[in-house]
């Protein structure tokens, strides 16, 4: 018998009784942008609330003097930012900042989710540079985790981000920034 057959036959022998199981529908609720911003900031990420017209200027200000990377299909123009041309991991080390959009924001937990969609690029570009700037439109913010999960393309690589990288491994003292970006800024664009 193969390992697979052995395991499956043991599961069958256990004959765990089945009971009815119902998933409760979570009602779609209007998301609170205030709550989202508050909870993102709680993780010590920097939150900017801007209007559509202010996006480019804000991004240019954040990126001034830094070596900046954006996904190839990023929708905003930033002076001097370099579009991802399939750089090697070693080449990515030379970038200080990456700017991306995201798929959805979840107010309940202050989480942004990247799903490799428009303007987000591959995972390595938001991981290696030490500073991640993420843009989210107000209409991309949902209230609950359930709604958030519905909005992403699940079979693409997903990264749920709730604040900058952190550890409490040494005497339970929180240290921001171990391996992931040590600085996270979120631009929330008003509707």
């Amino acid at each position: 018998m193969t390992a697979k057959e052995r395991i499956l036959s043991r599961i069958r022998t256990a004959a765990v009784p089945r009971e009815d199981y119902f998933r409760t529908e979570t009602p779609v609720q209007p998301a609170s942008i205030d709550l989202f911003c508050e909870r993102v900031a709680d993780y010590r990420a920097i939150v900017h609330r801007v209007s559509q017209d202010e996006v480019s200027a804000t991004l240019n200000r954040i990126c001034e003097g830094r070596r900046c990377l954006v996904a190839a299909d990023f929708e905003f123009v930033i002076e001097g930012a370099i579009a991802d041309a399939g750089f090697t991991h070693a080449e990515l080390v030379d970038f200080e900042t990456t700017i991306t959009s995201c798929a959805v924001g979840i107010a309940e937990s202050g989480t942004i989710v990247l799903d490799a969609g428009q303007g987000q690029g591959r995972r390595a570009i938001t991981l290696i540079p030490d500073h991640h700037v993420c843009i989210i439109r107000a209409d991309q913010v949902v209230s609950s985790l359930e709604e958030g999960l519905e909005r992403v393309m699940v079979t693409r690589p997903l990264t749920f981000i709730s604040g900058p990288s952190a550890t409490s491994d040494i005497e339970l003292v929180r240290v921001e920034g171990v391996h992931g970006p040590r600085k996270l800024e979120v631009l929330v664009v008003k509707a």
Binding site: D42, V154, T159, I161
Partner: peptide, 8 residues
Amino acid sequence: RMNPYTSV
């Protein structure tokens, strides 16, 4: 409320 990173 949520851990910093979840990868899927």
